[in-house]
Design a protein around this nucleic acid. Structure first.
Length: 276
DNA sequence: CGGTTGCCCTGGGGGC
DNA sequence: TGCCCCCAGGGCAACC
């Protein structure tokens, strides 16, 4: 699913199409997403004008002209598809659709229903429990090796698990954790607390580089993800290790093969020769 | 408390 | 072909 680059790509695709537009109609086909849609969901969106579209962590934040934020999380399998009015009959997983005053329709489709939608006051976002504990944005200048090393200090969990912990740093999921560790030459099994100095520098550089390249490529698309434009992203062709078990380690002459292990119930892919 | 496990849900792919 | 098991990009509650 959508990790930071995919969510950022959606935000960049939606922003020019939504900012300044008024939401004229909301169709809610089912309310039982990861958490139930808030009371009067459709009524509170209807008639509102979109002021801004932004991202925090893996959340899409649509700022409305009543000082509220329309918050969307895509979960594992959520998509936002932008299209013309009545372009097709709704599919079984098209849970929410809203149309704007220029005739566009945004459809939220999510087979597994791990996604969520909510409406919250923009001013109180820092006190919302979903946002209060979030770590720094990895692409901000504030995310440095010093900051990362301090967050990892004393932690006795594997660095791979720490990287996907949104309290340490946000936006990184299973794919980009594997890819960033490969670039940094760090074993996913290494204890998080041992990441400092040059290792922390390499890891921060690897994180920023892989996320920036993925955004530039328009986000990954393995199975479920479709850009706001409705076209597939292409970054999956550049995965060095993710989902490449048994294939030779790329970009180096170490002669190793990509291995798959399970950490915290999730697959990790890495080269045991290159990553220490 | 930090760290780990299991669950929410559906669909697709592989093995038999 | 059909069935069953396993797996999937996230996040959180419940456990040790």
């Amino acid at each position: 699913m959508p990790e930071l680059p995919e969510v950022e790509t959606v935000v960049r695709g939606l922003a020019p199409r939504l900012i300044g537009r008024r939401i004229v109609h909301v169709e809610q086909r089912r309310a039982d997403l990861r958490s139930p849609l808030p009371a009067r969901f459709a009524a509170r969106l209807q008639g509102r004008r979109v002021v801004d579209v932004a991202r925090r962590a893996k959340y899409i934040l649509i700022r409305l002209d009543d000082a509220n934020l329309f918050v969307i999380h895509l979960g594992m399998s959520g998509r936002l598809v932008l299209g013309p009015l009545r372009s097709r009959p709704p599919g079984p997983h098209d849970h929410v659709e809203f149309s704007t005053d220029d005739g566009s329709v945004v459809c939220f489709s999510d087979p597994r229903r791990f996604g969520l939608m909510d409406i919250v006051p923009a001013a109180g976002l820092d006190r919302d429990p979903r946002f209060a504990g979030l770590g720094p944005e990895p692409l901000s200048p504030a995310f440095t090796s010093t900051v990362l090393a301090a967050a990892l200090e004393g932690r006795r969990t594997a660095i791979k698990a720490a990287l996907i912990d949104q309290r340490i740093v946000v936006g990184i999921g299973n794919i980009y954790a594997c890819e960033a560790l490969f670039r940094a030459g760090i074993s996913p099994r290494r204890l998080a607390g041992t990441i400092k100095n040059s290792r922390a520098e390499r890891l921060v550089a690897g994180i920023k580089a892989v996320l920036e390249e993925a955004i530039a490529a328009g986000g990954s698309s393995a199975r479920d993800y479709v850009q706001a434009s409705g076209e597939l992203g292409w970054f999956q062709h550049r995965w060095a290790v993710y989902d490449r078990e048994g294939q030779p380690c790329p970009h180096c002459d170490c002669g190793g093969a990509v291995r798959r292990i399970v950490q915290g119930g999730r697959s990790t892919f890495y080269c045991a020769k290159r990553q220490r």
